[in-house]
Design a protein around this nucleic acid. Sequence first.
DNA 1: TTGAAAGCGCTAACAA
DNA 2: TTGTTAGCGCTTTCAA
Lengths: 334, 334
Amino acid sequence: MKTLEEVAQRAAVSLATVSRVINNQPHVRPAIRERVLSAIRELGYVPNAAARTMVTRRTNIVGLMLPQVTWDWYGGDGTFYPMLLQSVSNACTVNERHLLLSTVPPGNPQMAREVLGGGHIDGVIASMFASADPVINLIATSHLPAVLIGRNPYYPELSWVDVDNFSSAQEAVSYLVRQGRRRIATLMLGTEGQAGVQRRDGYTRALLNHGLALDPALLLEPSRSGDDGYAAMQQLLDLPNRPDAVFAAADGMALRALDAIRERGLRVPEDIAVIGFDDQPSASRAGPPLTTVRQPIMEMGTQATALLLRLIDAPEAGPLHMVLPTQLVIRQSA
Amino acid sequence: MKTLEEVAQRAAVSLATVSRVINNQPHVRPAIRERVLSAIRELGYVPNAAARTMVTRRTNIVGLMLPQVTWDWYGGDGTFYPMLLQSVSNACTVNERHLLLSTVPPGNPQMAREVLGGGHIDGVIASMFASADPVINLIATSHLPAVLIGRNPYYPELSWVDVDNFSSAQEAVSYLVRQGRRRIATLMLGTEGQAGVQRRDGYTRALLNHGLALDPALLLEPSRSGDDGYAAMQQLLDLPNRPDAVFAAADGMALRALDAIRERGLRVPEDIAVIGFDDQPSASRAGPPLTTVRQPIMEMGTQATALLLRLIDAPEAGPLHMVLPTQLVIRQSA
DNA sequence: TTGAAAGCGCTAACAA
DNA sequence: TTGTTAGCGCTTTCAA
């Protein structure tokens, strides 16, 4: 690997001058600047990141912590993390930052601890299922600039980007009511995270608003992976008084519900209307195409990165919060 | 941030001793080791990565370069990169390495150049569409330990992990012939990469083996993104002498082909048999469930990481090559 | 406008 | 077994 010194020698100047040229600092005569630039080009010199970091305390690396990349997300596409990752990666490239990705295995935050404490990164973006995930605590105590995807009730000092899950769910369920539905079930997310809590509460609030009865038999919480949504829908269909609509808090569950309904020979939306959440790619190709709440996933990643870069430059400006709009995409399932 | 020196002070020993403890070196009295360990724990000390890297010339970071994470891969799931990423990430965690992810925008390899030249990483895994992608050249000239996903005809000095695309395609098409198909079309991948070339050649070889005619009208190359596979299938159906089987080199294309066939009121597999490639999650949920060639994507990521770690420890051991087995998964579309 | 030199936190060679 | 010390490659005063 080439060093500053070799460049300096070749250009017949001092280390300091080469450093100035590299960092686009003033006070270098144009002729000399040119000479240095040529030397750099000829040598194929690239500054050593570690050495730079030692003195500047900057890495130009953004950390991203996820439970995983791929996921059998409620039996659906599981495109949430890939899209988030893609958008954060894009934003990093645009802003000339590198991206250090940590998928944190449950119960083993050792690598995460090292990333957070070892000066690897200038700041971190994290998206975890549970509000109480130990990784969030590590982040909070690291005092690194940080932005969460999804608000967190336990760490008000942390910045976040989120959608309004409460209102979005409320809007979706209200839409069902306006379509004449009176017995509306919900397939819930786990409530370890705020998304699950707020979508459930939005559902409840919509029923309350319209004076509809709250039937606990109509609230089901399928497990996150696998085709549990299918079994849950069957359970709903087996009810003596089956629902005429379902609000599924994830597209995967909605798709599995569609399967279960179709198998019973029931029609969607005539017999049962179905609404999903996320608008994953497969939603529009479902039979029938799924009405769903679209989350601006890519935008969340982009904005999270933007907030983080602001925090890195001005930590005292935090905590920063941003709520991005969702959109009810009406197709044919409701 | 805490430093070695603070730990040394607190434990009342020298820097060297603390360093020895951290790096699990011998020649430290157990009692002293304990004292140092306590100091580390009490201080919450984590070694500074940049400082370590400066002297050891090791980063413990693996680079991964991809065109992107999400992709509308021939109108399909596009789970290839997310799965690859997941498996590499897992393997890194298991081997106590961090992962630096670079999605390289077409025509802008600047960040990649910096990663490769700046001492950011100990080695790199890359998966590009085109064998002649400039990034591959950057990698080859960086002299960093590197492993490609997919063999490369231009850089024999590079290590790779791959499947046998030629034989896999040949096997799939031979299966169609054994099922009595005589007029077999193929929806090809782009041929800028070896996967596309070899799947096409395997298709051709199977026809040759069975003495079947090669009809250029039966070779179509849909574009990588979007629903082009749908239009391609329509084109095949419009042929005066339409095919009785289709070998699609990507599941996405196969799925779109299924759509086009269904719309014409034709039956699969009775009228036209369809085979895909990849076995993406949606393949098994298609109507009818797709017969396809399963690629061990996660295994490729795992093995690529393993090879890379070997190369990092012993660069002269390379180039290393590994061919992983595929499997023809027979479902109902053929 | 340029250069000399200190020092970032750590490891490793060498001395004790 | 433990400690002292010389750098690793760079940026950043400070002096010239």
